[in-house]
Design a protein around this nucleic acid. Structure first.
Length: 492
RNA sequence: GGUCGCGUGGCCGAGUGGUUAGGCAGAGGUCUGCAAAACCUUGCACAGCGGUUCGAAUCCGCUCGCGACCUCCA
């Protein structure tokens, strides 16, 4: 059951049965963030998605080595600020060293990911710490004739590579068409390159460039594809299981990674390529130029003009997991609100599980329930289906409480374990009761207040009882009556 | 312009050649002094137009709409 994992491989554009190189240790590399700004909703979707994948792989296989880079070497901005890289630009803006920019936003990234209950990867390598390794591979590529130096910069010779390999196999591109297209398009650009489709392995640095290193070709800095090739192979080997990243990076970034790696080793690079889709906001794409970006910390605080209120990290995580990682996810307050309420109900169900009593026979097929959950996850990590199954199970929890359904002690334990495994371990959800400021003294005081209210109710003094409840509500404390007496909790 | 993907009910979002996705909201009900919660029941769908088929929302074509990538470059 657990071994029939099927995943969608961008390389083949099909779902394939996952066959690990070594079932004892799975290797996975995922392109991480460039840390020049805070993590936004798009990062949240991406890294929650790969966290789900990581958690499920860890659940199935003995060990998973998960490597995620933290890009700290500047790369050019996408806003037509030619020649200025993102980190350097932010560095000038903040008037601090580039590495201070990196340090600050890297910590913010971890802070936000921790809040989302994203588990830490095994290794977070940084390109700036792997300059010698990058230079080494570039030298090897030059030696093998796949790269050439011009004027202090080094470029990858795509046409040469394509003679014996298939450039474009990941993104479904055809090199001839690309060369034609390039010829018809920009006449300007890098005249240093032999061919428009070639890409930089090493760039000569202007004296004003903030980040630069010595190399056999003079002062410069690495191209933006080589870091991932180098670091994935260094920590996972020449050939490894899974490489993940955002769909928008499939071309050219991932395509170039493959070219560099396979030219260097003449072996297959990653066996499976997984790409997650993006976030839209009210049906529109999220983008700096549109001014509709939302940072994670803004979601958690509600401090953004597009947000009606704050949404807890678990609400955001649950919202993301309710759609498939390969689908686009449309953000709206309505959708977040729905996720918040749904998660609340599911969470209460998981808590209610604890009070169920065993019977001497079972009327529910727990094994079938468990199998359905595994089937969902085995089908390319289909968390929306798994979540739907957990909601279906809620009906049983209610029926078990009423005695309309029964479970033996053994089956009940199995049922609980199944819920816990999927809810906590695989989906990575955690209880998020707003109890941060609850403490024993306050609880004692509340018991006192509730005792007075109970006395008022017994004397049918509902005006007083309701007043107590209303005043407490104003203090963000909700009181709920039930058969077993009154309960209280903080409101969001 | 080129390559690729998507378009599901009020909202979000799975899935499939013929059978209930699920959540939220809505409607009705149980419970309750009231409220809340919980539980039960329930309405609403597959962008448009053609084609293949006994049968398509699911396959094919076209149209419209949306998105990613196509330049040095996370």
């Amino acid at each position: 059951m657990k071994s029939d994992l099927v995943l969608y491989n961008t390389l083949s554009r099909k779902k394939e049965v996952f066959k690990p190189i070594d079932p004892e240790v799975i290797g996975m590399y995922v392109c991480g963030p460039t840390v020049y700004g805070d993590a936004h909703l798009g990062h949240a979707k991406s890294y929650v998605s790969f966290d789900l994948i990581y958690r499920y792989l860890k659940h199935i296989f003995p060990k998973v080595k998960y490597v995620q880079n933290i890009t700290d070497v500047g790369h050019l901005t996408d806003d037509a600020d030619e020649g200025d890289d993102k980190i350097a630009k932010q560095s000038r803006l903040e008037k601090v060293d580039p590495m201070a920019v990196v340090e600050k936003y890297m910590h913010n990234y971890f802070r936000d990911m921790d809040a989302l209950n994203v588990e830490r990867a095994s290794i977070y390598p940084r390109p700036s710490g792997h300059i010698p390794e990058q230079i080494e591979i570039i030298e090897d590529l030059i030696k093998k004739g796949y790269a050439y130096e011009v004027n202090g910069s080094v470029y990858f010779d795509v046409a040469k590579y394509n003679e014996k390999h298939d450039y474009g196999k990941l993104s479904g591109r055809n090199i001839e068409e690309m060369m034609e297209g390039a010829a018809n398009r920009s006449l300007e650009g890098q005249s240093e390159k032999r061919n428009a489709v070639d890409f930089a392995l090493w760039k000569k640095a202007e004296p004003t460039h903030l980040m630069q290193w010595n190399s056999p070709w003079g002062k410069g800095y690495p191209g933006w594809h080589i870091e991932c090739t180098v670091m994935s192979q260094k920590y996972l080997g020449d050939n490894f299981d899974i490489h993940g990243g955002g769909l928008e990076n499939a071309f050219p970034h991932h395509e170039c990674e493959i070219a560099q790696a396979e030219a260097h080793t003449d072996k297959a690079f990653a066996n499976y390529w997984l790409h997650n889709n993006m976030v839209t906001i009210n049906g529109q794409k999220m983008g700096k130029s549109l001014g509709n970006g939302i940072f994670c910390h803004e979601l958690f605080s509600g401090d953004n003009f597009q947000l009606d209120r704050a949404y807890s990290p678990m609400t955001v995580r649950f919202f993301i997991l309710q759609s498939h990682y390969r689908s686009t996810l449309d953000f709206s307050n309505e959708a977040l609100e729905a996720a918040s309420k749904g998660l609340d109900r599911l969470q209460k169900g998981v808590l209610r599980l604890e009070n169920l009593k065993a019977s001497n026979n079972s009327t529910i097929d727990v094994k079938a329930f468990e199998d359905e959950l595994y089937q969902a996850m085995n089908d390319d990590f289909n968390s929306p289906i798994a979540i739907a199954k957990l909601f279906d199970g809620l009906k049983w929890i209610a029926a078990l409480e009423k005695g309309d359904e029964r479970l033996t002690e053994k089956d009940l334990a199995h049922f609980k374990k199944t819920y816990h495994t999927f809810y906590f371990d695989i989906l990575g959800l955690k209880m998020e009761k707003n109890e941060g400021t609850k403490n024993e003294v306050l609880d004692d005081v509340m018991q006192l207040v509730l005792a007075f209210r109970k006395a008022a109710k017994e004397q049918k003094d509902y005006a007083t009882a309701d007043q107590i409840r209303d005043k407490l509500k104003a203090l963000k404390i909700a009181v709920k009556d039930s058969k077993d007496g009154a309960e209280w909790h903080f409101e969001d």
